[in-house]
Structures are given as C-alpha cells and as structure tokens.
C-alpha cells in the first residue's frame, strides 16, 4: 500500500516538473523572440545567429521533454506553443539566405540602362542619374 502511494507521489511530482518545464520552454521562446525583434528594429541581428538557433531549438526540446514527463493539460498547451514557435522560427532562419544571379553588378561597373515609372507616374530613364552622385536602394515595397 505504501509502495503504491510512493509511486503515485512520484508520478505527481513528475507531472508538476513536466508542467514547469513546459512553461520554462514557452518563457525561453518568448524572451528570445522579444530580444530578436529588439535587434531587428535596430537592423542589427548578428550575422552569426547560432545562439538564436540554439535557443529557438531548446524551446521545442524542453516542450517535448515536458510531454514525456506527462505535464498537466495547461502545461501541454504551453509545450505545444513552444514546439511550434521554436520550429517555425528556426525555419525562418534556415531559409533567410539570399542568392543573387551569377553576375550581379559590382563595384567599378557602370549602371545598366533602364527605365521605370516613378511614384508620380512619370517615366524615369537611367540617363537621369548622370551628373550627380546617387544612392540607389532595392527593396520590396510591401510585405
């Protein structure tokens, strides 16, 4: 009888620990995401994002661990959020690399001839760039 009680007590404490682990996973993910977007706002996300990947992947690992320990139902919600969020954010890092064509323009080249319509609806011809130094920026107009 005592033995059975002890087993049940063990199971209960494992559940509590699992639930705590699930919330720790979610907290880790949220903290990392807040830090990430702070850096993103300053356009200073580091080139080497290994630590971010580590944190983003640690969250799902903790989430899975909490399932193994049979976390309580509300812990499971936190665990699922941590797993989905962590995997998704890691995936965005994995596919973020850009690849240009084989022969992009480089320093020393002259700009190619081009025409485009400006925001007033007028035609812009690249010849208009001559005569004064210019900065050209390429970016997407909408997300």
């Amino acid at each position: 009888m005592d033995e059975q009680k002890a087993v049940m007590k063990n199971a209960a404490s494992s559940k509590t620990l699992g639930t705590a682990l699930a919330f720790a996973a979610l907290a880790l993910l949220i903290a990392t995401v807040i830090f990430w977007f702070n850096l993103a706002n300053k356009v200073s996300i580091p080139a080497n994002r290994t630590l971010f990947v580590f944190a983003f992947l640690l969250a799902p690992v903790l989430g899975v661990a909490s399932f193994v320990m049979k976390a309580r139902w509300f812990g499971s919600i936190a665990a699922v959020a941590a797993i989905i969020g962590g995997v998704f954010l890691t995936a965005t890092i994995a596919i973020s690399r850009q690849q240009v064509a084989d022969n992009p323009i480089t320093v020393g080249d002259t700009v190619p001839y081009f025409t485009a319509v400006d925001d007033q609806g007028d035609q812009f011809v690249s010849d208009m760039l001559y005569g004064t130094p210019t900065v050209i920026k390429f970016f997407r107009a909408h997300w």
């Binding site: 700009v111 130094p133 050209i136 390429f138």
Partner: peptide, 14 residues
C-alpha cells in the same frame, strides 16, 4: 530583389 544599396558617382559608376 535582394535588398541592396548602391552608391554611384556622377558618371554612373558603382
């Protein structure tokens, strides 16, 4: 496009 910024001189050279 890949996000890019170019600085040209007045002859249109990068």
């Amino acid at each position: 496009p890949v996000p890019a910024t170019l600085l040209l001189d007045k002859k249109g050279t990068v």
